[in-house]
Amino acid sequence: MDTIIVASLVSLGGIGFFAAILLFGAAKKFKVEEDPKIDEVNEALPAANCGGCGYAGCRNFAEGIVKKNSLDGFFCPVGGNTLMKQIAEIMGLTAQEKEPMVAVVRCSGSFKNSPAKNQFDGVSSCKSAHMLYAGPGGCPNGCLGLGDCVISCPFDAIKISSETGLPIVDEEKCTACNNCVVACPRSIIELRNKGKKNKRVFVSCINKEKGAVAKKNCSAACIGCGKCVKECPFDAIVLENNLAYIDFEKCKLCKKCVLVCPTGAILAVNFPEPKKVESIDKKELVESKREKIETPNPTQKNMKNSEDNSKESNSEKSENPSQNGALKKSDENNSTKKELSMEER
């Protein structure tokens, strides 16, 4: 018995020793010399491998920086300016500051605004549906709501709302990595400036059809009337192919365009509650106040708040005497619907 134990100990030990020598030799011989800076930069990176920088993963990004020895054209949207500063320190370079960005969904074709005319049956893929038809609401540029953006997001920052059928971006989680922008077959999602205190004003529509056609499919479509262009004091809005676009570099967040938009296609998000509320019924007021008290900081329930705000802007609009009656009605409908859903929650 003993001999067996000894024999096996010796032979196993021998094999182990031999393998160790082999590995040691191989490690010495085939060692790849690498700039230690790559590792350093790589360590600093968030390791999300989202591809938002345009490189195939964080390591690739680090290699790129070290190889070029420059930060030109390199920006990690996840880490943002602080991270770039850190990398600049490692590299002994200076980083260029960039405005933080956030993904913005430019479609208001909710179930309410753009009621479904057809029932889609098939793979839950926007790309597939995009090849098939214009979409349930009939808008050829509208959100299909099948969640290609949700799947593409590596940060779990985008969700499809079950109430509206539209994607909701969680501004806290969103890193502006651009993945959803690429994933959307209709290019609805855009990266925009995060803005001061997350305040943003944008046209929530990309439909280039003629006003009447667009309006037929979606009550919140941009009809290309041009009112906002005239109203804007900063020349920040351009109208092209029946579609208004707000240049976020120029926009000063004055919200004048929001007030004149006849369809409510321009959204202003994360603005504080308007101080004077006149013609809104009491219940809504109470409701929104409660909402405010519950969430004093806008971080947690950002999206809810932004919805809230958009609603607020809608209601504000309905005070506007230049409004035409029918639209007012539909807007009120909108806010009451949101109101109801809020109660359900």
């Binding site: 098939g122 793979v123 893929s125 790309k127 597939s128 090849m131």
Partner: peptide, 12 residues
């Protein structure tokens, strides 16, 4: 839905 996905692949 094999063909649905193949169509997506083809367009890509």
């Amino acid at each position: 839905a094999l063909l649905d996905m193949i169509r997506v692949g083809k367009s890509e």
